[in-house]
């Protein structure tokens, strides 16, 4: 059992192949459903390119799987703040996703100044910042400043929410 697990862990890139297969099937089934008997202009209809892309997705998935099984590995991207020697820190990633989705869920309800501040503070907390006074202050300041600059100066409307209706 553990042998299978470590075999899969070693070849987790097969997940990308699975993703490509799912995408390919999705594109192909969607393409086949497009009715072509009417409204078609020219010899090539709206189906052709999706069918090509879908088939290529399946082909590339197979080739990539072959590459992975033969020992090929994609090179993880390096960067200034990236330490590839450490294992992936999933807790941080999940907390970040939470902060991001909280903004999406709240922006329509409480408005951007509040939901943006929650996003910034939440993300900073997720990434290990623990200044319980400074962090929320920066978050609130940045969020309100951004709102004012975009909404009032640049003419890009953002939802103000109940907080901004007070003013």
């Amino acid at each position: 059992m553990t042998a299978t697990k470590s075999w899969l862990r070693e070849r987790s890139e097969l997940g990308i192949c699975a993703l490509l297969v799912v995408l390919g099937v999705l594109v192909l089934t969607d393409a086949l459903r497009i009715p072509t008997d009417f409204a078609q202009r020219g010899p090539v209809g709206p189906k052709a390119v999706p069918i090509l892309v879908g088939s290529l997705l399946l082909l590339v998935a197979a080739l990539l799987a072959r590459d992975v099984l033969r020992g090929g590995r994609g090179e993880a991207e390096a960067g200034e703040d990236v330490d590839l020697s450490a294992p992936a820190d999933w807790r941080t990633v999940l907390l970040l996703c939470g902060a991001f989705l909280a903004n999406a869920a709240l922006i329509g309800v409480v408005g951007f100044p509040i939901s943006g501040a929650i996003l910034f503070w939440g993300a900073a907390y997720a990434l290990g910042s623990r200044a319980y006074v400074r962090d929320p202050l920066i978050a609130a300041g940045l969020s309100i400043l951004t709102f004012v600059i975009f909404n009032n100066l640049l003419g890009v409307p953002l939802p103000g929410g109940p907080l901004m209706e007070v003013f």
Binding site: A99, F112, L119, F120, A123, T146, L158
Partner: peptide, 14 residues
């Protein structure tokens, strides 16, 4: 770094 990457997500959302 927490502020940097929090800021990136913040402005991406904007």
């Amino acid at each position: 770094r927490p502020y940097l990457y929090a800021g990136i997500l913040f402005f991406a959302s904007v």
